Structure formats: structure tokens, C-alpha cells
Computed example of a mutant assay.
Amino acid sequence: MFANWRQRLIAPEAELLARERSLRDLRERLGAWAGEIPRRQRAVRAILNAWRRNTFAWLIDGRALHSLDLSGLELENHDIADLTLADGFTHIEDLNLSDNAALSHLPEPLLSAFPRLTRLSLGNCRFTRPPHVAAPSRLTWLDMESNRVTWDDRAQAALDRLSKLVLLDLSGNPLLRAPALDRLPSLRSLMLNNSHLSALPSGLGQLRQALLLDLSGNTFERLPRGFEVPSEVGSPLALESDWLNPVIREQIEDYYQQHGIDLLVSDFDYQELLRDASPARLRLWQKLPLQYRRGMREILESAQFDRNPTATREAVWQRIARMDNDPAFLQYALERPAIELLDL
């Protein structure tokens, strides 16, 4: 920090005095805002830590984003409306307001305090549409799981502004209508599961970088006429649901017979098993009956796999190889649930 100031010809002593004044002013304003309200007082501590650059959101690749975490504080709309932040938050890249069950609105002046915002988490709140962020082209992550979003043209217009999204989570919302994805070409993770959808979203076919397209738990009635997507899209797609009618189930089965892609279960569900698998092992995997493969997900969710994933994974592959070489063992295994494979 000091070296940076010197490079910019800023005297460290003067900068430290300025920061001390800014911190004092911020404390006074936040103290007046919080008063004797416990939830606001808890928020003040989080805000001051974020101003000091002491809080981070850690990504799976090891990178850290400067974060303001106001999750689970029972904040309400008027709390946020009354909150005014100064210029000392331009470094914030991650804002987490999840688990504030009464929160349904984010005023634009508040969001304008975070021009570098790339991740916004609003899960388990009461929002009805995506918020308007200050720099929509920077936002790559929007989590609005389990809100009250019912999709309409206004929600679509708000989403269309977020053209750089890599992750979009709208699961657990009563969407009724599927969002159009045509303007979100960078999406890699999409969660629209359990969202009361009866038709697939448009724009799926362009999502060639996707890792997971979770549309499970919906009431889809049929695949669109002439439906065909690239394998990079079909493999991460998950349409599994107890509420699928016989028509679409038959279409999904026919699609697998024609293209070798299971639209019901995403390859993402098997990643812990297929990780670092050789081409030879992947060929053995493809030879297993589809329904049996689906059942093997239970092994990946088992306590045995949790305790020792490496050894359990190797034990599974050994049995899959034996199934390929020993017809009697293959028949014996297929007569039993896949979860029992490790017991054979």
C-alpha cells in the first residue's frame, strides 16, 4: 500500500490522516444509522470490516474477492433504504445479502457504491426481479435462489443487461415462464430447478461452455419440435423430475438412443467418479446401461465415498471392469441396485 502511494506521489502520512478522518466519519454515520437496532449494529461491524478491506469471498480457484457480507442479519427494506455509503467501497467485488427473508428491494444509490461488483448473492430473500446494478457488464454471478421471482418482460429486460453472467441461479422461484438466455452467451452454470416451468428456455443451444444446466424438478411437457443441441450443451443438461409426463420421457429416451446424450441427468452429477478417468475407463462407463449409471449417483452421495473418495472411486472402477469381463458378474450386478455394487 505504501509503495503504491509513493508511486502515485502521495505522502503516506497525509494519506493515513485522510483515511483516519474517513473512518471516523463513516463510524459516525453508521452509528447514527444503526441506533439501538441490533440487526443494524451487526451490519455496522460487517461494513467497517469491508471498508478496511478485511473481508473476502474465496473462489474455487483460490482467488479472493473483496467482499461485503451482510447475509443472515434480518435486514429489511427500510434498513437498506436508509443506508448511505461513501466512496470507500469502490473496491468491493462481492456483495452478499442472502438470508434476509424480508428484503425485496435494493436501491440503485446503494448499488452505485460498488462499481466493481462482479458477484451478487440474494438467495432466500423476497425479490421479484433481478436488481439494476451500477455496472451490469461487470456482473458475472447472480444468485437469487428461493425468492419470489415470477418471470415477466420487466424481469427479462433486467436480465438482458447482465450479458457477462457466468452463473445464474433462479432455482426455487415460481418463475412459471422460462427466462430467455439468448443474450447470456457466457453462462457456465445455470440453475432453474424447481421453478414451475413447463417449457424449456430459449437460447440453450448457444451455451457451449456450460458445466451445469440444472432444469430439474420442473413440469416440462415436451421437447420443442426438432429439438437438438450440441453435445457440449446436452451433456451438462439436467431435466430430471418426478412430474415429467410420459410424452417427454419418451422423447428423452429417443434422444439418448439417437445421440447418446442423457438429457435427464447431467454429466456434472458424475464428475467425482469420472474425474481423471482414462479413455478406456470412459468407454466402459458408456457401455453400462443408462438406468444403472443414473443409479450410481447414490454411491457418490454415500458416507463411504465421503470418508475416502479416492479408494471408493478405484473400487467402483474395478467392479465396472469386472462387469465388462465377466458376463455372470455383470448379470448379478445389474439385478441389484447400483448402490450395492461395492458390496459385491
Rank of each mutant, 00 (worst) to 15 (best):
G295Q: 05
L117E: 01
T219D: 11
P179A: 02
L192D: 07
L85I: 08
D267M: 03
S231M: 07
L187A: 05
N96G: 01
L200M: 11
H66A: 13
L165M: 11
A199Q: 14
L17D: 04
I10M: 10
L284Y: 06
V265D: 04
R52A: 12
A86S: 09
T310A: 11
D87K: 09
L244M: 12
S112L: 02
T90Q: 14
L117N: 01
D306K: 14
E15D: 11
F329Q: 06
L184S: 05
L48E: 08
P337R: 00
L162C: 08
G31D: 02
S22A: 15
L274T: 04
W151L: 10
K287I: 06
E221C: 12
S71A: 09
Y292M: 04
A277L: 15
A3S: 13
S278A: 12
L213T: 08
D87G: 15
R294E: 08
L117K: 02
L330D: 01
L190V: 14
R53E: 10
S278Y: 11
L97A: 10
R336S: 03
A178K: 03
I37N: 11
N4M: 07
R19E: 13
E301S: 05
R29V: 12
W141S: 10
G72Y: 10
Y332P: 08
T90H: 10
R281E: 14
S189Q: 08
F329P: 09
W317G: 07
R19G: 00
S104A: 15
E228N: 01
P12V: 10
R154A: 14
R39T: 08
E28C: 03
E108L: 12
A280C: 09
D69N: 15
A113N: 07
L341C: 06
L165Q: 14
L120P: 13
L106W: 01
A303N: 12
A321T: 09
E76F: 13
L207E: 02
R40S: 00
S104T: 14
A34L: 09
Q258M: 07
F89T: 15
D69E: 14
E13W: 06
L176D: 11
L288R: 02
T310V: 09
F56E: 07
D152W: 02
T128I: 14
D169P: 13
L110F: 06
Q331I: 03
R8K: 09
T150S: 14
